[in-house]
């Protein structure tokens, strides 16, 4: 078995999801190579070379990979990936964007969002918004897989000593070009990696009221999330959406405030260790998954919570 893991990064630092994907790779078993594709990203290659279990790092450093465009990355990974039995990437928006292109170029299926490795060809993945877990077995010669990072612990970030090899493969597709980006700036921990997440829903009524959640988040070192309804209503930006079609989180503590608990929202947070729900409707479905439920008006209890923490 030889496994290629595609690193996720921002050209400066490795994203923690990569270390979790490396755990899945280690569980499959075999030699693990990591591809770092980006621009002026030598630091990332050096960083991942230290990670436990990595035997080799391939560095494709070129302006064409600067923004991780799927057209370019897809071709690069498909060409290199031909020599491996497994190609893994985190199931982030970047991984979801280019990996299916890799699979199609290699004429194999993709197994999306695995949550467990049963054997080298068999994996578990949630379907139907996590209301069912499928065990799937692939007969493809190359298994193209995206990994749900909340389902795996990270490998140690240090202790490894892999060699870094430079690649000169330049794949540029001029039909697609990067125009710009608006990235959220936050001092708070990343939603998908935070120990505590506090999320607000439609019950928050407006964006300003989210400051009540932010003050509590600051006290707890928490990230702030939201339901789809809160994002659609424009209270907060899209990158805060937790759920089936948003971000998947599994913190030690998840606090849902003014969120009803639709299946699509539960799909994104029900693997949290401890769940707290604050909702004024005692029949809200969120209480069916909450370890601690508080039936109350959020505008009354949030200030109290802030004070008691």
């Amino acid at each position: 078995m030889s496994i290629l893991v595609i690193a996720e990064h921002d050209n400066a630092r490795l994203n923690a999801a990569t270390l979790k994907t490396l755990t899945a790779a280690t569980q499959i078993g075999g030699d693990v190579t990591v591809l770092v594709a980006g621009y002026q990203c030598q630091a990332v290659a050096d960083e991942v070379a230290q990670a436990a279990g990595v035997s080799k790092v391939l560095l494709a450093d070129n302006a064409v990979y600067a923004h991780f465009l799927a057209e370019n990355l897809g071709e690069l990974v498909a060409e290199i990936g031909n020599n491996y039995t497994h190609i893994l990437a985190p199931a982030t928006t970047t991984g979801k964007n280019f990996m299916p292109r890799v699979a199609a170029l290699l004429d194999v299926a993709q197994i999306s969002d695995i949550i467990s490795v049963v054997s080298a060809d068999t994996f578990k993945r949630p379907i139907y918004a996590g209301n069912a877990i499928a065990t799937v077995q692939s007969s493809d010669a190359i298994k193209v897989i995206t990994v749900r990072s909340t389902a795996f612990d990270p490998v140690a970030a240090s202790g490894g000593n892999a060699t870094v090899e430079t690649l000169d493969v330049v794949k540029e597709n001029t039909k697609a070009s990067f125009v710009g980006e608006e990235l959220a700036q936050s001092e708070r921990p990343d939603l998908t990696a935070a120990r505590v997440v506090i999320s607000g829903g439609r019950g928050m009524q407006n964006g300003e009221n989210f400051q009540m959640l932010e003050r509590i988040a600051d006290k707890l070192g928490a990230a702030v999330g939201a339901s789809r309804a809160a994002v659609d209503a424009g209270f907060v930006p899209n990158d805060m959406q937790v759920g089936q079609t948003g971000k998947i989180v599994a913190p030690e503590l998840y606090i849902a405030v003014g969120i009803s608990g639709a299946i699509q929202h539960l799909a994104g947070m029900k693997d949290s260790k401890v769940i707290v729900a604050i909702n004024k409707d005692e029949d809200a479905p969120i209480f069916q998954v909450a370890d601690y439920g508080l039936v109350a008006d959020l505008f009354e209890v949030l200030p109290q919570l802030e004070e008691l923490l």
Partner: peptide, 16 residues
């Protein structure tokens, strides 16, 4: 090329 071996219900959370 990918066969479904089994489909299970997810672990249920008991209401707290």
């Amino acid at each position: 090329t990918v066969k479904v071996v089994k489909v299970e219900a997810p672990a249920e959370r008991s209401a707290g």
